[in-house]
Amino acid sequence: MNIYPIKFEPILQEKIWGGSKLQSVLNKKCTSDTTGESWEISGVEGNISQVANGLYEGESLVSLLENHTSEFVGAANYERFGNEFPLLIKFLDAKTNLSVQVHPDDEMAQRDHNSYGKTEMWYIMDHEEEAEIILGLKDKNANTEILRDVTGDNVYDVFNKEKVTRGDAYFIPAGKIHAIGAGVLAAEIQQTSDITYRVYDWDREDKEGQKRDLHLDQSVAATREFYEECKKECKANSNTSSNVVACDYFTTNVLRVNKAYEKSYANLDSFVILMCVEGCASVTVNNKTEIVFKGETVLLPANTKEAFFFAKDAQFLEVYID
């Protein structure tokens, strides 16, 4: 496989809660002021990413995977996932609250949807003053049947809310109730799955005056409570990878670059995804260089041995499966 930093065309998703920051802050080519998500790398059926640069320009993510197998994703990943790309990579702009929701784990998703579950993480890139997220039930011992009775009057009695700060990171395992609140701009890393069970949607209506469906039976069945903290330490040390999340589905590090820096990937049996969340940097692999700006994402194939970075001050989320 030809090795270079691969960029993909963003897939922009209109959302009832979306805003304009994907365009105004991250320079996406949005055509409305309700663009909620930019899918940077996606193997979700119906939303397959296309290569935007270099030798493979115009090819699909699926084509790269089918043609280059373990050289593209790593031997262990190809054995585990075959021709399905295992991660969905997004930037997200919430002008208003997302629904309070939960996602199934692998077992439930396979049984009911023939799909993977959805474990995810968020990195808070920016936020409006007093912006909040919802994480879990306020009473961790509550019966999940309580989800059937959520209203605008009791939503914050039922669910735990937290204020966010720029640079915060959160790990959301499948089965954890959550919602990103109004005013949050975030990077999201997740399993390849687009299954969401809505618990409460703030009684809002779409342009046709219709409320979106809730999925209360599935939510009650999927919801579990977790006692470990969702918020993860996210300390960016200069010119080194600092781990934020390590789970069965992905590893995410924060990588801050403020000089010329060489990083070896020779011992890693995985593709590497680099999401630029601050500044800009050049990334060189196999003598091929891409400038990566805030809000852009590149993928380094699994047969990458080393990458060379240069920046005055840039920050990446470095994602792979280990």
Rank of each mutant, 00 (worst) to 15 (best):
Y156N: 15
P173R: 06
E128R: 05
S242R: 00
R256N: 09
D168H: 03
E145K: 09
V254W: 10
L255N: 06
A236C: 01
D126R: 04
R166M: 09
D248Q: 08
Q190V: 03
V158H: 14
Y156I: 13
L185A: 04
T192L: 11
D139M: 13
E229I: 05
A182E: 09
V220W: 08
E228M: 09
Y227R: 09
T144I: 04
A186F: 02
N239A: 09
S193F: 02
T192Y: 05
N253H: 07
K235D: 08
L216G: 04
N237L: 07
R256V: 02
R224W: 07
Y156P: 07
A187N: 01
A246P: 00
S238Y: 05
K235F: 07
I146H: 11
A236Q: 03
F226P: 06
P173I: 05
R204Y: 12
V155H: 11
D149R: 15
I146Q: 12
L185M: 05
A179N: 06
N243W: 00
Y197Q: 03
A221T: 04
T223F: 09
I146C: 15
E225G: 09
N160H: 15
L255S: 08
Q210R: 15
E188P: 00
E128G: 12
K231G: 03
Y156W: 15
G167Y: 01
K207W: 02
